[in-house]
């Protein structure tokens, strides 16, 4: 494999890792607050449909992204009401929301556009364009680093850079702010947070809403940046890969970034089986590459690469006063 191919691979790694990363960080807030969320997939899908449809009507990717966030927030609200207010089973609620999203997105897109459940192709300002970072062309002649900067780091949509910015922001919020401390506490020991006079429900709701916003960005990225429009089931299990990455990263933001980059790299590899074959000299079946993130997650869950321990109060609704 030559350097140019490697750069191509890394470039698509960044593209493919971005929706995973946004969804993964989304899940991080919810799960750190003690609300398990296997509905990331459904929220992303809803957001992708809303973003695709509104971007088509307005011709503006930003308005589309906003609509995506709103759509995802509605689902987050249902999840919150179900699992926090009515103390329902969080996992079952997530499963239900995924099915709802899967059906409703197609129904809506079909009713609006009549094109078999997808939005018309988006073009121009309806998509997030690629940004060329300063000096990308000027630095290209620099050996090794120049092409890396020009081809891999530069030339992505703003949401890609935003995703990596949110990693830093999340780290800061989680470990350097009062809100982050409370968030971590409420996922481990809600009774203690309650005793300190902080509302457990309020904290959890806020976390679930942040999850909604980030899933909204992830979905908007899918429909208006990575691809040109919404298509049926376009998230294709990314919500679950993000969940896998979250476990892989043991619910920590910076590690989540590395996990998503790794899984994004696998996805990029699955698109280039020829490269894989040239490197390992054995024909690797594409389905194996597709399955790799899931297999790795199971291995991590099994505790063979350091044990993944979820937030202690995760999955349990909080009941005040017994």
């Amino acid at each position: 494999m030559d350097y140019a191919t490697l750069l191509q691979l890394l470039d698509s790694t960044l593209r493919l890792a971005t929706p995973l990363l946004l969804a993964c960080l989304a899940g991080l807030y919810s799960e750190r607050s003690g609300v398990f969320d296997i509905g990331l997939e459904g929220k992303m899908l809803t957001a992708a449909m809303c973003a695709g449809a509104v971007a088509f009507y307005t011709g503006n990717a930003w308005v589309g992204a906003l609509a995506g966030i709103v759509g995802s927030l509605i689902f987050a609200l249902i999840h919150g009401v179900t699992s926090i207010t009515f103390r329902g089973n969080q996992l079952i609620a997530g499963v239900a929301l995924n099915f709802l999203a899967s059906g409703l997105t197609v129904l809506t897109a079909q009713a609006l556009f009549g094109q078999g459940g997808r939005t018309p192709p988006l073009e121009g300002a309806a998509r997030f364009g690629e940004l060329t970072l300063p000096f990308a062309e000027a630095l290209r002649p620099v050996p090794i680093l120049g092409p890396l900067y020009a081809d891999v780091i530069s030339g992505h949509s703003i949401l890609v850079y935003a995703a990596f910015g949110i990693v830093a922001l999340t780290w800061w919020v989680l470990y350097r702010t009062r809100y982050g401390l409370r968030l971590r506490a409420v996922g481990e020991n809600p009774a203690a947070v309650d005793t300190a006079g902080v509302s457990v429900k309020g904290l959890r709701f806020s976390a679930v809403m942040i999850t909604g916003v980030l899933c909204g960005l992830a979905g908007a990225y899918m429909a208006t940046a990575l691809q040109a429009g919404f298509g049926k089931e376009m998230t294709a299990g990314r919500g679950y890969i993000a969940l896998a990455a979250l476990i892989f990263a043991k619910w920590r933001p910076v590690q989540a970034m590395w996990a998503c980059l790794l899984f994004g790299f696998f996805q990029a590899l699955a698109l280039r089986p020829d490269v894989v074959e040239a490197v390992v000299h054995v024909k690797v079946p594409v389905p194996f590459l597709d399955a790799l993130p899931y297999i790795l997650t199971v291995i991590v869950l099994a505790g063979f690469i350091g044990k993944a321990i979820p937030p202690r109060a995760g999955g349990e609704p909080y009941v005040k006063e017994r």
């Binding site: 179900t82 009515f86 103390r87 329902g88 609620a93 239900a96 099915f99 899967s102 059906g103 197609v106």
Partner: peptide, 26 residues
């Protein structure tokens, strides 16, 4: 009406019988 309506109904049934059980009961 697209065939996906059944996925919606499926999701709603899971939501109400599984997750919002408590709400119905209350």
């Amino acid at each position: 009406i697209p065939i996906e309506l059944r996925t919606v109904v499926q999701g709603l049934v899971i939501l109400f019988t599984g997750a919002l059980d408590m709400m119905v009961r209350m």
